[in-house]
Write a protein that binds this DNA or RNA. Structure first.
Lengths: 180, 180
DNA sequence: TTTGAACCCTAATTTCATTCGGCCATTATG
DNA sequence: CATAATGGCCGAATGAAATTAGGGTTCAAA
């Protein structure tokens, strides 16, 4: 994980995220209101040391920001849907990007597969979803949309710091070689 | 460490979220590290008044929690994908729900449409995605999966407090009557 | 060996969260 | 109409937390 035999740039950015950083991130992703003293003794550091690392993680961009996560139902946005948008030509048109201005639109991705663009939207009701879809259809080059309305959400969380080191072998599949 | 401001999980507060609350939320969704004094004079309140409202928003569950938002690329999770899972029978099986235990899985929804379940996953690479898909296929009742690998993300943000009051009329559609 | 950088610590200082008491409003209530 | 009672706000005080300061230790390069 640490590569000390490589060149050591003096630049502040390419600093590696070590195990201690991951433990800090694991705490802060769950609860960003802990005091540095509390954070420190959860990961085994003093308050200033924890603070120093958090500052570094922010500076280097690993921590983008601290945010309040709100309950959409409490704010009248009870309808969640994923919208696949098929476009002719290049999907990322300015008109289509303009829908990102609506607070109902939470995500806009271009994807590989049979859909060009994929949107995650959260509206008050089906009527508002229809209004949003109408805006999408108005964009030139939009051929069709397919909407997947969410019935129940079983898990929804921001990016996690953890990674699964080794995946269990599936029952029915044994690869010939473990390339890479 | 005194706990006079304990967050009670009880939510018998039928109090509505007014315009001032929305303005507070708009600030905190963007940056949860502002001091109450700063928050106060951004929305036009004193520090204790702003504090009081934030406490109420937390108690009532409108603010679920404060969280650090991290940059997945910096943590070696550069591959984002949406996985549609077709199942026979009821999709929400314990085996399928078990994949929610992996930190790579960020969202699990059941959806209306031709897919029963929809997952948002973020892995290190395609190999790890394959490992995760193998776990999904191992769940009984899983007929097929379709994966949409994200090429570019143009927008990705947590739920926003704002709602669009009135949707612009689409060019090509004029309803006969404005019901409701 | 020396130097410098990276890391950590304890202790001091300053900033801020939190509490407290009081001041209007609005809304029941006698 | 008068009078509580309530809800929401403010300014000031207090206590906790963030932040800074001043070394110690280790490790690796000069």
């Amino acid at each position: 994980m640490k590569e000390t035999d490589e060149i050591r740039p003096i630049l502040p950015s390419p600093q590696s995220v070590d195990a201690m950083d991951r433990r800090i991130l694991a705490v802060l992703v769950e609860d960003a209101t802990v005091s540095y003293a509390e954070l420190g003794n959860r990961v085994g550091l003093s308050a200033p040391a924890a603070h120093e690392r958090v500052k570094r993680l922010k500076r280097s961009g690993v921590i983008q920001r601290m945010a309040a996560l709100i309950e959409p139902n409490a704010l009248g946005k009870g309808l969640l849907a994923f919208v696949h948008v098929d476009t002719r030509g290049w999907g990322k048109t300015p008109a289509l990007m303009a829908v990102a201005g609506y607070p109902e639109v939470e995500e806009v991705h271009s994807v590989a597969g049979d859909a060009c663009m994929l949107l995650k939207v959260r509206t008050e009701n089906t009527h508002a979803l229809e209004g949003l879809l109408a805006r999408i259809y108005d964009a030139p080059g939009v051929l069709a949309t397919r909407s997947y309305v969410v019935l129940s959400t079983y898990l929804e969380r921001p990016p996690q710091p953890g990674v699964t080191a080794s995946w269990p072998m599936p029952k029915a599949l044994l690869p010939i070689e473990n390339a890479q």
